[in-house]
Nucleic acid binder design. Structure first.
Lengths: 166, 166
DNA sequence: GCTGAAATCGCCTAACG
DNA sequence: CGTTAGGCGATTTCAGC
């Protein structure tokens, strides 16, 4: 692996695969302007270097009966590293918790949760989350609707920034 | 399209493709226990029915220079539908805003943002977000670390729930 | 070193039972 | 849903820049 630097073709590949992860290699090669074999080699290199963490189908949670989405702001009693880690580990084991981010400021963690319905979430909230060791406070907010939901990396920003340095 | 109900094989397909969106159809067919052609037909049906919204490579933002991740809690002055829509539209146009969710309670929106560095985010915050029409208050929290980041649907919960109803 | 061309292998994807 | 079968893509090999 070279010094970890990407050329414009590599960034183009990442951008295309982020938008359509099932694109065939020949189509990808055509779009980025090289032939298939070197394109495939670049993709493998990007995967091995960790630029690409994986490929996933985007599944609609509502269609599968997960009607409820909730953000939970969690404060802990102790912020000792071992206590933070313990809480994080607990979150990884809770299937209703899909994201757990440690924050600065007064809130210690923000959790994105899903559930089939409100009562399922409520019973998780009172029986598991609030009752967990070291949890001092939990504030929850129901998601009314998603105006934007694109976790993807904004390559437009990256390219603009690079062109400014050139 | 039939009544929109999924059988266990369909759910298995969704679960596998969510975990590995680039799996070949023959491998997928092998895993769910049917032959390739009907498997492909099911996948196409699931795509057309909206169960699968798309396929995406998961790209590491940090490796691409997006070192900063921030949650912003936004309150608006007016909650009239036209004003909510206008703000949502603005968020869709801001590339640094990757998610925008409308919430109940005192906070109106939560935004997940990324940026190459703090100063880029600060200038977005003061120059764009806080300055946008109808924005009354913005509270931000930096993400220190991600303990869990799996937007995926928890099929384990779904299966357990279905088996309980059976 | 890299890319591209050719060839092989395996998969995709119709058509049919 | 499975089987068959033809065409296309994936992937290795090898030559050229």
């Amino acid at each position: 692996m070279s010094g970890g630097k990407l050329d414009p073709i590599d960034r183009h590949i990442l951008s295309e695969l982020q938008a359509d992860g099932r694109m065939t290699n020949v189509e990808l090669a055509r779009r980025v302007g090289i032939s298939a074999p070197p394109c495939l080699r670049r993709v493998r290199t990007l995967e091995e270097a960790g630029y690409i963490r994986g490929y996933h189908a985007e599944v609609d949670p509502r269609k599968l009966g997960f009607e409820v989405q909730v953000f939970a702001m969690v404060g802990l009693n102790s912020q000792a590293e071992s206590d933070l880690s313990a809480f994080e580990q607990q979150c990884r084991e809770w299937p209703l918790v899909r994201e757990c981010h440690m924050l600065n400021g007064e809130i210690d963690f923000i959790l994105k949760c899903v559930a089939p319905d409100l009562s399922t979430f409520q019973s998780f909230l009172t029986g598991q989350l609030t009752a967990a060791p070291n949890v001092a406070s939990v504030k929850t907010s129901l998601v009314i609707r998603d105006a934007k939901n694109e976790p993807a990396v904004p390559f437009e920003v990256l390219e603009e920034r690079l062109s400014r340095l050139a």
